[in-house]
Simulated scan of single mutants.
Amino acid sequence: MRIKALVVGLFLAATTGSACAAGPYLGVSGGVSIFHDADLKVSGTSGTATTDYNSGYGFGANAGYNFDPVRLEFEFGYRKADVDHFSGPGGSLSVDDTNVKVMSYLVNGYYDIKTGTIFTPYVGAGLGVLDGELQVQGTKYDDTVFGYQVAVGTTIAVDQHIALDFSYKFQGAGSDFSKDGVSLSYLNSSFSGGFRYSF
């Protein structure tokens, strides 16, 4: 009987939970950031090297307005990963003290899919600018380019103001980061968790 009562209680909680209120909100998140293999080009040399990364990390903060079911927000993001090795026709070269950092400044739009429960899946996309920096053993190459991202995720309402947020975001640059004859392509996948507070 106790198990049955627990199951019934969980079901009722899932079906009667209230979604976060419409209006302004703030949020923070953090998680694993996976930099996809990137093309590295250096002027004066022939061919293209492939950059392989270790798994990295990222975090973000956002502020927006929930029009219910559409949300619009500004998001700042930070992603970093160490380079594991470069590879090309001549083989591969492992490196130390070499990493890539990307800071993003995006305007996002989301559509919340109402389920009548505490779970609210969503889809979205964003546009803005990306500040990228490649650091190779103390030498830095940085550039600012147009950026975009698409996202899917779900929120879990704790109450009318607080929700947990879990998401996958795919982010890319409209053109290579390029500085002083060095250019690097950029694609990233991030899996993150956080929370959102609605006022």
Rank of each mutant, 00 (worst) to 15 (best):
I34A: 10
V7P: 00
L93M: 10
F170L: 12
G147A: 02
G147P: 04
V100A: 09
Y25K: 06
E73W: 02
N54M: 10
Y148K: 00
G174N: 06
G153M: 09
Y122C: 09
F195L: 15
T98L: 08
K114P: 12
S183V: 10
D52T: 14
Y197G: 00
V123T: 05
T154G: 15
G64W: 06
S87E: 13
F146K: 09
R79I: 01
F166I: 12
Y168R: 01
S190W: 00
Q135G: 11
G116V: 02
D84Q: 10
N54K: 14
T50G: 06
N188F: 01
R2H: 13
A13I: 12
A63M: 14
L72W: 06
S198A: 15
A63K: 02
Y111T: 03
Y78D: 09
D142C: 05
Y57I: 12
F166N: 00
T154W: 09
K80P: 01
L106S: 08
A5W: 01
G47A: 04
Y186F: 14
D142M: 07
V182R: 03
G194W: 00
G91K: 09
N188M: 00
Y110V: 10
D97W: 01
D37R: 10
S18F: 14
L106R: 07
T155R: 12
Q137E: 14
V28F: 15
G126H: 06
F177C: 03
D52N: 15
D143R: 03
A173M: 02
A173I: 04
Y25E: 07
V152T: 13
G153W: 09
L6K: 13
G194Q: 04
G172Y: 02
D37K: 10
F195N: 03
K114C: 03
D176P: 00
L72G: 13
A163D: 13
G153F: 06
S55P: 11
S43R: 11
V158E: 05
Y111N: 03
R79A: 14
V70S: 05
D131F: 03
F170W: 13
G174M: 01
F59T: 01
D143I: 08
Y186K: 00
K140R: 11
G88N: 07
G109F: 07
L93P: 00
L164S: 02
D82H: 01
D143N: 14
S189F: 04
D131T: 07
Y186S: 07
T120D: 05
F59D: 10
V136P: 05
T115Q: 07
V123K: 04
D97E: 12
G17L: 05
